[in-house]
């Protein structure tokens, strides 16, 4: 590749506007979705968790805290933001459906 091509590419890269505002929005959306998931898991855990209510809540909190960063990174990190949001949104619906269980 010629040096001219390389410098043009460099110049183009410099002119590309910073995607910071877009990423802030994405970060907020990811945070909200991951938080909703974690909240529903803890809220629903007495319905589906093992043992007594205390044990079930503890179990739910273990899962919520473990999955929160993973879902946050998935929602934020996917190339297509809609895909990440949809994936975590489905996880939220699954977590919310835990509230329907009756023991």
């Amino acid at each position: 590749m010629s040096s001219y091509g390389a410098s043009t590419r460099k110049a183009v890269r410099q002119r590309t506007p910073s995607p910071t505002p877009k990423w802030i929005g994405r970060g907020v959306l990811s945070l909200v979705l991951a938080w909703i998931f974690a909240h529903f898991v803890t809220l629903g855990s007495p319905h589906w968790g093992p043992g007594t209510r205390h044990d079930a809540v503890i179990f739910g909190q273990m899962i919520a805290i473990g999955l929160f960063p993973i879902l946050f990174l998935i929602a934020f990190g996917t190339k297509n933001p809609v895909r990440g949001a949809v994936f975590v949104g489905i996880a939220c619906i699954a977590a919310a459906s835990g509230l329907l269980f009756e023991r």
């Binding site: 803890t42 209510r53 739910g60 273990m62 919520a64």
Partner: peptide, 18 residues
Amino acid sequence: AYTGTFIRARTIFPPVSY
């Protein structure tokens, strides 16, 4: 990070609605 957040989980993820 995991164990510490878990120990104080009741403050951010209570088992009741916010």
